[in-house]
Design a protein around this nucleic acid. Structure first.
Lengths: 203, 203
DNA sequence: GTCTATACAGCGATAGAC
DNA sequence: GTCTATCGCTGTATAGAC
């Protein structure tokens, strides 16, 4: 039952998820097949269907795991020393890391294909963005109360602006193969939220 | 040869492009087939292949036409009275109109699927974004010189921020079916570029 | 310019042996 | 848990009649 922290899970189901995750982030959910995964892992398509009955089940499992990992990453950002400004920078860096592997955000990719997805996957995609919005909202409110951040409108609206802008910056930067293009957009976006004259410790 | 302005082109090739365009913007390039188009138009798949030999040819024609129309729309924005601020608002409104039809930007969608596209389509997608960047760059520089706009960094970097942020705002707003979510992000983004105290005539 | 008919590869999915 | 074998369907694309 216990999953070792030292030794990562190398079970077949996990390996399937790892490969499928990469395919979705690079090609989109409609851009790969069970045959692609089986070829990559050296197992048959039938073996795939044993672990994930259908592509929809696999897709939903991908989103749930991705959202879970993202939540952990956000907790890590919270745990690290630093105020609201540093936490926002840490948030943007999560996106940058994904782009560095020449991948799109899993749920950003699925947002594009949204209308073709089975409903369980649609629901999971929206839950991911809601989760991001909630975390950002907290950071923004805390930062504004501490006098570190400033922004017009509500924290929620600003959180949505940040999510959309970072997803969009990834979307465009990836075809150009230009990580710096993303970083410049992220920096400019977050700079507009820092209150001039605020004393901050930047990570 | 001359295409009437009053009577739109109702030729088969145009009707194919219209239907295919909608499919790409809603489902993605990998989310529809020749059969879908032929069913929608009441013609056979073979007839489609007469007008566009392969799906790649059709895809490239879609992007070229879309970019051409977008260029016309930008010219219209330029022709309308108004300064840099109004032109930026007009630019954002082009995106809003697309989202209003519950569509994603054609090239934003194709940016997500970029790695699965044939190279002619890839090239055309990047050309579209370059075209947008160039137009925005001009507006931003003009606005800054006129004292209407202000922004840190170069006009080019700011242009890229705007493109990415609007594409991303569309990407996220569409699954939620929430046009207001896009508008709020666009307003907030552009408000950050207006120089405080600047006297402007907003359309 | 559109049709019927068809080729052939690939898709997701299943049955049943091991 | 993985295999072989196969199903029914859909994918893009083509040949040739009209």
């Amino acid at each position: 039952m216990a999953i070792s922290v030292v030794h990562p899970d190398t079970g077949t189901a996990t390996r399937i998820l790892d490969v499928a995750e990469q395919f979705v982030q690079v090609r989109g959910f409609n851009g790969f097949s069970y045959a692609d995964i089986s070829a990559e892992l050296g197992i048959t398509k039938a073996a795939l269907h044993y672990h994930f009955a259908g592509k929809a089940d696999l897709g939903r499992a991908l989103i749930v795991r991705y959202a879970s990992r993202f939540a952990e990453a956000l907790a890590d950002v919270d745990a690290a020393a630093g105020g609201a400004s540093a936490r926002l920078a840490g948030y943007a860096d999560l996106y940058r890391q994904v782009l560095h592997d020449q991948r799109m955000c899993l749920c950003g990719m699925l947002a594009a294909e949204y209308q073709t997805l089975p409903q369980p996957m649609q629901d999971a995609v929206l839950a991911f963005f809601d989760q991001n919005e909630h975390w950002l909202e907290g950071v923004l409110e805390e930062g504004r109360e501490a006098g570190i951040l400033q922004f017009g409108g509500t924290a929620r609206a600003t959180a949505r602006l940040i999510i959309g802008s970072l997803e969009g910056a990834m979307l465009i930067a990836r075809p150009y193969g230009d990580e710096a293009r993303f970083q410049a957009a992220a920096d400019s976006l977050l700079a507009g939220l820092i209150r001039p004259g605020a004393v901050t410790t930047v990570a």
